[in-house]
Simulated scan of single mutants.
Amino acid sequence: MQWNSLVALALVAPSHALIRFGCSQLVVDRLDPLVNPGVEPSPHLHQIIGGNSFNTSMYPENHDPPKMSTCTTCQPSDDFSNYWTAALYFRARNGTYRRVPQKGNVGFEAQNGGMTVYYMQNQLADYAQKSKVKAFQPGFRMLIGSPLAGTKQEADKYPQLTYTCLQDMNTRFPETKAFPTKPCPAGIMVNLRFPTCWNGVDLDSPDHISHMSYPASGTFESQGPCPSTHPVRMPQLMYEVIFETKDFNSKEMWPEDGSQPFEWSFSDTTGYGNHGDYVFGWKDDSLQQIMDEECYVNCKTMKTQSFEAMNACSVPKKVDEDVGDTNWIEAIPGQHSGMPPM
């Protein structure tokens, strides 16, 4: 179903909040202030969106995104959070690499790369969105997935990290756990859905995951109950990252043995290592106000800015290296550094 149809159906009845918005690229850099704070460069390359207070460290005790940021690449002007994933590469037959750029989703074509972000109380197709949720709190951070996952069994620990091979920009199914094995005419969409049950105490945890949980039974989509250890229901945070593969879709460029040629920046050729990071940074209680409003995508309490303002926000790269944006490079940055792919 096309997104315009979803919006039209949403107008049939009152609903609680689901928001969907675009975020332009802030920077592509080898930094990871969540897993590797203070490390410059970090083990692998990331593409980052959100508030311009993003930096190498971002230790929670002295990092307040709404106060420290002066702009954000996201459409909601009160959202200074940072969201990031690994960068994606195409491997040529001669062993050289080019970084695969991102592009805007349907309705967000004017943004500069980046991704689409969702906050929802029930599954996307549930127009009522009746469940009440507690918004993320200042200082909250988390990640989902593992770059060390090398098998489907390991990837299945994170059931809602998938890929969609876009036949056109409205394709949403099927979803796979591994990279697509054939060229995707409109690009590869990487889908990242975070757990929705919080322990109600910790804003973070040593592994950045265990303070959050999946439902005790069922799924988020079936409104499964949260476990007693993680009783607080929070919004489902979801990323859609569309990698523009049009320059790499010719089968003459693909490996002669029929294998797929895409590789994450931490040297994963399976796709099972898909993962994403999040540092909360909404101003005051603006996210809670939106979640409490009866709205679907277009919410009166969500202040927005123009694509021009989104695209104008950026930070300079900290790590001076060729990441293969305009030319072929011999190796993915960091992957021959001797550092583990964390």
Results as ranks from 00 to 15, higher is better:
residue 103 K to P: 04
residue 5 S to M: 03
residue 61 E to N: 11
residue 131 S to W: 11
residue 173 F to S: 11
residue 230 H to N: 09
residue 226 C to E: 13
residue 204 D to P: 04
residue 156 D to P: 00
residue 165 C to A: 07
residue 205 S to L: 04
residue 190 V to E: 13
residue 33 P to R: 06
residue 10 A to S: 15
residue 308 E to D: 15
residue 157 K to N: 10
residue 177 K to V: 06
residue 310 M to Y: 09
residue 299 C to S: 01
residue 270 T to V: 04
residue 1 M to P: 04
residue 62 N to R: 13
residue 104 G to V: 01
residue 152 K to A: 09
residue 231 P to E: 01
residue 2 Q to Y: 10
residue 11 L to F: 04
residue 133 V to A: 05
residue 101 P to L: 02
residue 296 Y to T: 08
residue 159 P to I: 13
residue 318 K to I: 06
residue 73 T to I: 11
residue 233 R to Q: 13
residue 10 A to G: 15
residue 19 I to W: 05
residue 162 T to Y: 06
residue 86 A to D: 12
residue 309 A to K: 14
residue 291 M to E: 03
residue 4 N to V: 14
residue 204 D to A: 11
residue 118 Y to K: 03
residue 186 A to N: 10
residue 73 T to L: 07
residue 90 F to Q: 09
residue 312 A to G: 05
residue 227 P to H: 10
residue 296 Y to C: 02
residue 189 M to Q: 13
residue 54 F to Y: 10
residue 219 T to F: 01
residue 177 K to R: 14
residue 73 T to Q: 08
residue 38 G to D: 06
residue 198 W to A: 04
residue 207 D to Y: 12
residue 97 Y to D: 03
residue 235 P to A: 01
residue 277 D to Q: 14
residue 326 T to L: 11
residue 213 S to Y: 02
residue 203 L to D: 03
residue 155 A to T: 05
residue 342 M to K: 14
residue 184 C to G: 09
residue 221 E to P: 01
residue 13 A to T: 12
residue 99 R to I: 10
residue 140 F to P: 08
residue 41 P to M: 01
residue 151 T to M: 01
residue 19 I to C: 05
residue 290 I to F: 02
residue 331 A to V: 07
residue 220 F to P: 06
residue 332 I to Y: 03
residue 79 D to Y: 05
residue 225 P to C: 03
residue 97 Y to E: 05
residue 18 L to N: 06
residue 45 L to N: 14
residue 240 E to L: 15
residue 171 T to P: 12
residue 9 L to Y: 12
residue 85 T to P: 07
residue 44 H to L: 03
residue 131 S to P: 00
residue 110 A to F: 09
residue 92 A to H: 15
residue 25 Q to F: 07
residue 241 V to F: 03
residue 111 Q to W: 11
residue 196 T to M: 06
residue 279 V to H: 09
residue 215 P to M: 08
residue 332 I to M: 01
residue 206 P to G: 11
residue 73 T to S: 02
residue 203 L to V: 01
residue 324 G to Q: 08
residue 212 M to C: 08
residue 43 P to H: 02
residue 86 A to H: 13
residue 179 F to G: 05
residue 175 E to C: 00
residue 21 F to H: 08
residue 10 A to D: 06
residue 10 A to M: 00
residue 244 E to K: 10
residue 53 S to R: 00
residue 71 C to M: 07
residue 252 E to S: 15
residue 184 C to K: 04
residue 78 D to E: 12
residue 236 Q to E: 13
residue 127 Y to V: 15
residue 210 S to V: 02
residue 140 F to S: 06
residue 146 S to A: 10
residue 292 D to V: 05
residue 196 T to N: 12
residue 103 K to R: 13
residue 263 E to S: 10
residue 207 D to M: 09
residue 150 G to L: 02
residue 172 R to S: 14
residue 44 H to I: 07
residue 192 L to R: 06
residue 108 F to Y: 15
residue 267 S to G: 06
residue 173 F to Y: 08
residue 160 Q to K: 14
residue 148 L to E: 15
residue 33 P to W: 02
residue 177 K to P: 00
residue 267 S to D: 14
residue 52 N to D: 09
residue 246 K to W: 08
residue 17 A to V: 07
residue 160 Q to G: 12
residue 305 Q to T: 08
residue 94 N to A: 11
residue 258 G to K: 02
residue 257 D to N: 11
